[in-house]
Each structure stands twice: as C-alpha cells, then as structure tokens.
Nucleic acid binder design. Structure first.
Lengths: 252, 252
DNA sequence: CTACTTCCCGTAGGGTATACGGAATCATGC
DNA sequence: GCATGATTCCGTATACCCTACGGGAAGTAG
C-alpha cells in the first residue's frame, strides 16, 4: 500500500510548528488570512459565498493564487471548520453537568455565529486541534463520573452527537429563514391547507387526538428546543445512573 | 398577508385524489415515472446525478419537458423523499419496544437503499403522506406507554431524531466511501501520521490514557453503531421510566 | 550576477437550473 | 370536416462553479 499522506495535516496543525526561514518570493497573504476571509464571507452569505473566486476577489488577488496557500476547496472548508471548533476554547474545572452545559452552550453559540457549519458534513471531520480539543473535553467530562477509561467513549460520543445534531438542526433552520425569507412558522402557515384539504383524519388517529386536545399550539422552533433539552436530560441521567451502578459494583 | 399556497401539496398527495378527465394533449410521462427515474439515478450515482438534465435524458425527453410535471428541482427532491418515506410501510400492533425497533430497522434500511437521503436537509421536510405516516407511527408508539396525549410529542420527536440522525450519519459515510473510494478505516489510516507527528500528548491526557489502555482498537463505523444503540437504550429507558412514574402519580 | 525558491495568475472546459415564448398534439362541439 | 381551447413539449441563453497546466515575476543566498 502506497500510504498516501494528506497535505491537510500540516495546514491544520500549522500553529504548533515554528515559522520556516524566508526563502524565495515572499507571500502576499497567509493561510490564516485566507481562512479568516472565507469564514467572514460564509458567515454573511452562506458557504457557497466562500467560493475560491469570491475569497480571492475579497483579497484583491487572482483566483488561482489561493491554490498557493490551500490545496483545494475541500481543504479550505476543513480549515474553516477546525478554526471555529478551536475558537470555542473549551475548558472547565467543573463537574460533569457543568462541563456538558458549557459544551452545549459553546457549541450552540458556534453554530449561531457560523450557520454555514450546517452545510458541512460531520462525517470524517478535519482532524485538527479544534476537533481533538472537543474530543478531549468530552472524554474528560465523562471521566469525572469515575468510569474506567475503556467506558468513556460511548457516553462521550452519544452526548456530542445529540448536542451537535441539535445545534446543526437549528442552524439549518436559520439558513432556511435567510434563503427563503420565511420563518419556520410562516412556512407552516403556507401549508395550512394541508389540514383542511389533504389530511386524512382516519389514517392519523393519534395526531387527530393531539390536535383535538389543543396540544399542537407551540411554534416549531420552540418544540425542537424542547425536545433537545428533554433528550439531553434523559441521556445525562442514564449515563450518571450507569456510572453510579458501576461504582457500586466495584466497591462490593 | 397574501397567503401563498405552495404547488407542492397536490403533488405530494396526488394519490388521494381521483384522476382528472383527459383534456388537451396527453402527457408522455407522469409524475410517478419522473420521480421513480430520479430515485433510480440518485440511488446509483448520488443526488446530483438526479439533475433535471439527466432525468430528462433518461426518459428520452428534453430537459424543459420535466417542468410540466414538476414545478422545479427542489419540489422533485421533496417528492423523491416522501416517496421513500412512504415506502417503509410503517405499521405494527406490537408494544412500545417492538414498534421502535421496527421504526429503526425500516429507517436504516431506507437510508441504506437510498443513501442520497443524507444529501437532503431534514429541516422543513415534505409534508406528504410518507412524512405524516412517520409522525403518526411514532406518536402511536409512545401512546402505548399510556402517556396523556399532550405528552406524546417530546418523546416521539426525541426518538425519531436519534434514529434518523444515526441513519443519516451512516448513509453519509457510505456516500463518502463511494465518492472517495476509501472506507472510514482507510481514511483514518491515511491520517496515521497525526499521532506520531502532530498529536500533543500533554494537551490530551484523557485520550492518551485511553490509548495507553488499548481501548482505541475498534473500527470507526462499529463505534458509531455502538454509540447509537447505547443512546437509544438510554432514551427508551428514560421514557419508559417517566411514563411509569406518570401512571403511578395518576393512580395515587 | 547567478542560481534557486517560491509566489502569482490567465486560459479553457464541462456542469448546473430555469425564464420565456412558440410549436405540436389531443378531445370536444358543431 | 373544422374551429376552439387546453395541455404538453422544448430550443435558447445566462451566470456560476472548480481547477490542471505552464510560464512569468519577485524575492534570497552565495
């Protein structure tokens, strides 16, 4: 096997390496500047606005010049993602709940400041300082419960998935509000005729019962928030419970 | 407010309405055929392959002819999604756990047969028969626990989110394997130099401890499966527990 | 001044969705 | 047989996207 080593790792970890001696024509830009500009554009107009052409134009440089700093666009996106992951500056000396709360708050704040994160796949994320700091933080948070090291991964992954999934979802809703000009509630109102013209009452008895009980009033975004907090609570309780059981087993 | 009513609803619910009298030039195709062709292309080559041009070519028709059947491409995607949602044929007379298991199995099977679902946003889904059948099924499943109707929505949403999120994630991994030609494990192997050349042991004590304990062996896809089953278990336990508490309260 | 290194960038090509307006094709009524 | 109206069909034209290639430009070191 030819063991191809991707060019992205030195870029992701560029800050942990000392600057090279200056040789050859000095660069007009830097990776940091390119990434920061791309993030700024994506924040304002969505990920597609951070095209190679737009970023280059913003920096008064020809499109192809960017390829001196970044191998290709997917790598640029990786760098953008790890940058904002790292910027959360996750750190805490609190207990389990405090750490999870900090993680959730910072992650939601990140998605709100950078909604384009919802346009990026969370599978095979950039393995840079930001992503590794997140892993370390969540594993350390679960470790405060006293679980053995080989039992940390599952709970940490479950919590991170739930939180990130919810933040992702909310950010996607925000993007849709911007691109369509409609809030989620307005979008539902547009589909109001569904209930009068198309909905089959007999095929949906449970929904009809809920409707008749008047339990369908709250806005969609609120409901999503609600379901997130509810699910997170269940996960944390379950994890804490299994940890205390495990501790008792070890004592006896 | 002008109360715009979207043209997509009659298309989504086209099967619950009798065929119109034939007037004018008879159509060469039908909505069903267009949607089925688009699904077939997307199954084989990804959602982008189901472009208006490709679908039209597949049907030996000019691109613009499709616009007589479907208002635009986003609506076509909505129709594709609701079609495969509906095809799960969710139905069960079992208890809570059996219904949830059926839902999870069918949903994973759906994402495996149609991995392009992972390329579609789950926010503001098509409000067609397939999506409403899913809602009804999950709400009825939770109702078997004896909860009052105004308490069904939160648990149902939480379960559906967790299951769909996991299936979505798995499908995205499958798509990446196809487009990159690399499995998740091969992708990690490519980044093997991360640990030797870039990883900072002192900044990541917990990860290092796990590593030293040899608890990092299993493949990434396996771990994801594992975390999904673990989290689902916690959610179901928590929901069942709160339902039984609620029942006891009502009795006393 | 001569290497050597590195940055800068013009060109060219194949993809995408869809507004517009006119031609083609059918059922119906007389 | 023919006019009418409804509906389907479709050619054209536009503005973006990413990036392989290769040569010119601008520095430093000796």
């Amino acid at each position: 096997m030819p063991e191809f080593s991707p060019r992205i790792l030195p870029l992701l970890w560029r800050r942990s390496v000392p600057a090279r001696k200056a040789v050859g024509r000095p660069p007009r830009l830097s990776v940091d500047v390119v990434v920061a500009t791309a993030i700024r554009l994506a924040d304002a107009e969505g990920l597609e606005a951070a095209s190679m052409a737009r970023v280059a134009a913003e920096l008064s440089v020809a499109t192809m010049s960017l390829y001196t700093y970044v191998p290709s666009r997917p790598e640029l996106v990786d760098l953008m993602v790890d940058e904002v992951l790292w910027a959360r500056a996750l750190q805490s000396d609190g207990d389990f709940r405090e750490r999870v709360t900090l993680y959730a708050d910072r992650t939601f704040a990140m998605y709100r400041a950078h909604p384009w994160l919802a346009e990026v796949s969370r599978v095979r994320p950039p393995v840079g300082p930001g992503m590794l700091a997140e892993q370390e933080f969540m594993l350390a948070a679960v470790a405060t419960l006293g679980l053995p090291v080989d039992r940390l991964n599952r709970p940490a992954t479950a919590i991170a998935s739930w939180v990130t999934g919810a933040a992702h979802h909310e950010a996607e809703a925000a993007l849709l509000r911007r691109t369509t000009g409609l809030s989620t509630d307005e979008w539902w109102q547009q589909r109001g005729e569904l209930w009068e013209d198309w909905f089959d009452v007999e095929a949906h008895p449970t929904m009809t019962a809920i409707w008749n009980a008047g339990a369908f009033d709250r806005g969609a975004d609120e409901q999503a928030q609600d379901a997130f907090a509810y699910g997170l609570g269940l996960l944390l309780e379950g994890i804490e419970r299994s940890a205390s059981v495990e501790r008792d087993d070890r004592v006896s």
